[in-house]
Amino acid sequence: MRPAALRALCLSFNAAVEEFPFNPETSVFKVNGKVFALTDLGAEPLTVSLKCEPEEAVRLREAHPDVVVPGWHLNKRHWNTVTVGELPAARVREMVEDSYDLVVAKLPRAERLRLDRP
C-alpha cells in the first residue's frame, strides 16, 4: 500500500479528518476529535499507528514480530505501529477499519448514530 492509498483509506470513513497537531509531517486521522491513526506519509518505510484491542494487539505482534510492534509513543497496550508495505493491503485495511471502529464504539450513542455505526 502506498502513502496516497493509506491516506485515502483513512479519509474514507464517515466524519474522518486529517490534522497535523504535532508537526507538518505527522498526519493524525480523527473521527469526532478522537484519534484512530497516526502516520508520517513521507517516511520510509511507511508505518501507521493504529488502535487495537489489547488481546488482538499482542496476537498481531506475535504473528508479525518484524512488522507489528507496540505503538510508538502511545499506550503500548492499545496501540500498534504497523509497517504498511510488509503486510497485504487487505490486512492493513482491516486493521485501519478496526481502529476506526474501536474509536467510534467509545463515542456517545448520538454521535455513533450520526455516523451510521450503532
Rank of each mutant, 00 (worst) to 15 (best):
S49G: 09
S49R: 09
S49I: 06
S49F: 05
L50Q: 06
L50F: 04
L50R: 03
K51S: 07
C52E: 13
C52K: 09
C52R: 13
C52N: 14
C52M: 15
C52W: 04
E53V: 05
E53W: 01
E53M: 06
E53D: 15
E53I: 03
P54T: 03
E55P: 00
E55M: 09
E55A: 15
E55W: 00
E56P: 01
E56D: 14
E56T: 15
E56Q: 15
E56N: 12
E56G: 09
A57D: 04
A57S: 14
A57W: 04
A57Q: 04
A57N: 12
V58W: 02
V58A: 15
V58E: 15
V58K: 14
V58Q: 14
V58P: 01
R59V: 08
R59L: 12
R59P: 00
L60F: 11
L60Y: 10
L60T: 08
L60C: 07
L60G: 08
L60I: 04
R61A: 06
R61D: 04
E62N: 13
E62L: 13
E62V: 11
E62W: 01
E62T: 10
E62G: 08
A63S: 14
A63G: 06
A63Y: 06
A63Q: 15
A63D: 12
A63W: 02
A63I: 07
H64I: 08
H64M: 06
H64N: 13
H64Q: 09
H64W: 15
H64R: 09
P65T: 10
P65C: 09
P65Q: 10
P65H: 11
D66T: 11
D66E: 13
D66W: 00
D66H: 07
D66S: 11
V67S: 13
V67E: 08
V67H: 05
V67P: 05
V68E: 03
V68T: 04
V68S: 01
V68K: 02
V69E: 13
V69Y: 08
P70S: 09
P70W: 09
G71A: 00
G71Q: 00
G71F: 00
G71I: 00
W72N: 12
W72M: 10
W72P: 00
W72T: 11
H73D: 03
H73P: 01
H73G: 03
H73N: 12
H73V: 02
L74K: 13
L74Y: 12
L74C: 11
N75R: 05
N75D: 11
N75W: 02
N75S: 06
K76N: 05
K76E: 02
R77T: 15
R77E: 14
R77S: 12
R77Q: 15
R77M: 11
R77Y: 07
H78I: 08
H78K: 10
H78W: 14
H78F: 15
W79P: 02
W79F: 07
W79Q: 08
W79G: 08
W79C: 04
W79H: 06
W79L: 08
N80S: 02
N80Y: 04
N80E: 01
N80K: 05
